[in-house]
Amino acid sequence: MHSTYFLLFFEFLKVGLFTYGGGYASLPFLYLMADTYNWFSHEQLVQLIAISGITPGPIGLNMATFAGYQTLGLLGAFISSFGLILPMIIITSQVFRLYRKFSENKYVKSILYVLRPTSCALITSVGAKLFYNLILNSKLDFSKVDYLGFALVVFLFLLTFKLKRDPIIYMAIAGIFGVCVYFLK
């Protein structure tokens, strides 16, 4: 039991330390966690992404809280959030004192030059995974494709040319669409 607390802390410390480029960049770590430990399933992880989007706060933090709570209750939620935040408190407040120099530093610039395409690729891999899980139902079989879901994604994609990037709009439209599908069935 104690070792689970420690693992939870340590795993989210890793997420806090290795996430570059926003909440979705932490998803590959959470998928790996779902594979490694029986703390939460892939299905729960997908629910968690949806929940994080419709509650306040940064997605990364919401995920840590949710995963911690699923695993070990309130204390688990606290420990995973603390693990996530700790590296940020230490690193970021140190960086503050030299922040102008930091963002102008040639090594920092060079690292970011490589790191940015890396985090784009990690996020893309999550998108591909979600597409595979949700629309293809985790099978490469065309009779199992969720065509209605595919149509919804295409529709939302077309909306991105018209609407602002505010995520809540897309979630709301998709949620309402889902409820309508339920009542029409």
């Binding site: 926003g22 979705y24 997908v46 629910q47 992404i49 949806a50 989007g53 419709i54 784009c120 996020i123 893309t124 999550v126 998108g127 979600l130 597409f131 949700l134 629309i135 879901g149 919804l152 994604v153 939302l156 994609f157 991105t160 990037r165 995520p167 897309y170 979630m171 439209i173 998709a174 949620g175 309402i176 669409f177 889902g178 409820v179 599908v181 339920y182």
Partner: peptide, 18 residues
């Protein structure tokens, strides 16, 4: 069904973030 829709929208949100 609500989650089904919201989950699918995440694919588009990832596209927007990218």
């Amino acid at each position: 069904s609500l989650f089904w829709g919201v989950n699918l929208s995440v694919i588009v949100l990832i596209y927007l973030a990218l």
